[in-house]
Amino acid sequence: MIPPLIVLAVLIGGWELICQAGWVDPLLLPAPSAVATSLWEDRAILGPDLAVTTQEVVFGLLAALVLGIVLAVAMHLVPMLDRALRPLVVGSQAVPIPVLAPLIVFALGFGLAPKIVVVALICFFPVVVNVADGLRDVDPDARRVLNALGTSRWQRLRFLEAPSALPAGFTGLRIAAAVAVIGAVLAETAGSTAGLGHLIITANAQLASARVFAATALLVFEAVALYVLFSALERRVVSWSPRTVS
């Protein structure tokens, strides 16, 4: 916990010094102290927008998780489906969201639905790929034991493959947490009436740089918080993994 705080303190301290020295235009790069002031003074604006974005992120992540796991299990059980869908899954990640997001907003309106779709679209790839690989990469000796016992396909999934896939699944989820926030902001910039992405656009138009950075800081904080939350959850759930034994 201490090392990242030291790095953060040094970075923010250096940034503050550069701004105080007057080397950069505060309109381009506001000082951390100005951002902190904005965080406090604009809290009545930032708070509700943070709540909106968080809602989009959480629902989008949930949708990605459910769809990703269902698809990964289906691809695992039906190899033909894996071969048929894997290029599409990879392709879905290459679609530029700024191109797609306005179309989704156009189809689903300015509400919550298009944001959930965009967040889910971005997050679903790391979930599918990690879960599918995790289901496949099981201990070959354990597989031999269960095969010799004459287990059904369902039993192998339940007793061997699903638990084996949990650590990889959590890796996917942590990656998804980091990109989910980007997805929410991109969806909001495509068309919205609230949320931190929406706030950034309006604050930019008003040249309120400090507020833009304050909103950005909240987005960064949200991504880190989700990552830490999922890591903690992983330590509880996957308590056998060498990674989680500290």
Binding site: D139, R144, V145, L160
Partner: peptide, 8 residues
């Protein structure tokens, strides 16, 4: 099996 194949 050779390596125990226990489920961790």
């Amino acid at each position: 099996p050779q390596r125990d194949g226990l489920l961790p």
